[in-house]
Write a protein that binds this DNA or RNA. Structure first.
Lengths: 332, 332
DNA sequence: ATGAAAGCGCTAACAT
DNA sequence: ATGTTAGCGCTTTCAT
């Protein structure tokens, strides 16, 4: 359990600790200092023989870099979180950075204890969070995902829905008069919810009367969305188009239609929100509204931020687009 | 971005760094050294004013403790992973330990870079993992979840299914002759799969003939399991009991039955495998086979291991039990 | 081409 | 009751 240090390696190789450090950092003959090939090989041999691993804490204290990226993901079970994790994993690979996820564990307390080169926070909508973030940003490089916060010592990632949801509704109402909505139950209660509001507004614009039987509410889980969609499509006068307030729900709706031997998009057209990879990959591929390249661009941004502190804090906007794929194709 | 150090605080408070260290560690009058209340207050004030946060890296290098727990969770989307994360989050709260999740990111490379007081690995079944673990264990405290590995410098967590699955089958066949199985498609191909094997053996023991139309295969996702169960229950001569090879599948089967207006357990009895919280919480509560208290006990063990290095490495077994709940109750 | 040595921020004997 | 000081393992400037 006693790890060999750079000193042990130095002794074993018969050189100084400085030499070991240079060699292990790859600064031989060419770059930095000119350590001879001979000693370099000797050092490597010694390090291998001893099973030497550099002590990250020591390195961090010396260089100020931890090579750590912290991702605070509030809802680990959300596909969104999984997409972030996946994208970051891919982006980070070549950068020598280790991404670590902070689950529901409150970042509000954890960040004070544990630092990282860059910290991504996916939700900061509690009372006082704005001030807290500014304070934490004094000693951490923060990247915050928020629709409302302004950059203030930290970076802000923002997705800009704009009028894209309206476009999606218009696309459906252009060729369909029986347009239904699949949405989580709680968003129906407060009609303020933007996504459900976009559905209602879309109907109004097209001069279509609202039908309560064309609204399917579900309870948050995939299964419930599926069952809600089945009920929706099994009624006597079923809708021919579905506007789902998440890709999640849209995917369930497509499955439900297929389960009922309805063709998508011929019998039912479906549009989701989120533009997730999952939706893009299914058959038929899901038409959706959302930012493009969100996850990869976010991941790249994080890696970039991890490498250079000091650049001015930015606001990174992800404008939404309407992606017309097979489940509700463009009319040709 | 320039953090105040213990030195800055010492200067501000007009004391030595040692005093600051003591005060901030809570070692005043009573324990350790007797720092007067007066100076203690002064130090705290200074620390607050400056917004001082201890540097974890420095502390780690000095004490050898990182206050970090690393959880390598291979399938982040798996409810199992979520349960681990949840339980650990709860257990860790009072211990001053920060739990960090290493997602699909290979622990095989990450652990070499980043240390922690204790590292939990949920899957180590690749070629050469056994040796790698032993090597990594020289400088890390590892806890590995595995059915096959033997403790070798690291702890092993093992769940012992034993004959419990057989009990579950016997429970079903005691009162039912039409017992179906819901299992992932791939486990059907290799009849070696233990869980599916338990189903077949159970039938044999009860002298019930195997019926291929009583086997529903699904493709891994929840929706697919649901659809498979619907098909199973909609056939002319439906089963009256279902043995599902995971709680996941069992939950889907219960939902499917309910969707078809079948009563559980009156029309269909269901037993799952895993004994997950999710199953325990549903209505009707799910009968299941699995270890009891697995997640909380695992979490407690991890916290314990994080605090004291040095204890001998252990093999922690979680014997399985049959939990008879509402979905397939005990006969009274 | 290599080594000596300072020092990152912190803790814990050991002095005073 | 508080201060002095020696490191923890590492990087890096400056000598040699």
């Amino acid at each position: 359990m006693i790890r060999p240090t750079i000193k042990t390696v130095a002794a074993e190789a018969g050189v100084s600790t400085a030499t070991v450090s240079y060699v292990l950092a790859g600064r031989t003959k060419g770059q930095g200092s000119g350590i001879s090939e001979a000693t370099a090989t000797r050092v490597h041999a010694a390090a291998n023989a001893l099973g030497y691993r550099p002590n990250q804490a020591a390195r961090t204290i010396r260089t100020g870099k931890s090579n750590l990226m912290m991702l605070s993901l509030t809802m680990l079970s959300d596909p969104w979180s999984l997409s972030v994790s996946k994208a970051v994993g891919a982006a980070v690979a070549s950068a020598g950075i280790t991404p670590m996820i902070l689950a529901d564990t409150d970042w509000r307390t954890a960040i004070k204890r544990q630092g990282a080169d860059v910290i991504f926070i996916d939700a900061a909508d509690r009372e006082g969070d704005a001030e807290l973030l500014t304070e934490l940003a004094r000693s951490n490089h923060l990247v915050v995902f928020s629709e409302t916060l302004e950059p203030n010592g930290f970076d802000v990632i923002r997705s800009v829905a704009g009028t894209t949801m309206a476009q999606a509704m218009d696309h459906l109402t252009a060729t369909h008069s029986k347009v239904a909505c699949v949405a989580p139950g709680n968003s129906l209660r407060s009609s303020t919810t933007i996504r459900y509001g976009a559905y209602l507004d879309g109907l109004k614009r097209a001069g279509i009367d609202f039908r309560p039987d064309y609204v399917a509410a579900f309870e948050g889980d995939e299964l419930s969305a599926y069952q809600a969609a089945v009920a929706l499509l099994q009624q006597p006068d079923p809708p021919t188009a579905i506007f789902a307030t998440s890709d999640y729900a849209a995917i369930a709706a497509v499955h439900a239609a297929q389960g009922l031997r309805l063709a998508v998009p011929e019998d039912v057209a479906v549009i989701g929100i989120g533009n997730t990879l999952q939706g893009e990959m299914m058959a038929p591929s899901l038409s959706s509204v959302g930012p493009s390249d969100f996850f990869t661009r976010l991941a790249d941004f994080l890696v970039d931020r991890a490498n250079d502190h000091g650049k001015p804090h930015r606001e990174l906007e992800f404008p939404w687009r309407l992606f017309l794929r097979d489940s509700a194709p463009a009319v040709s």
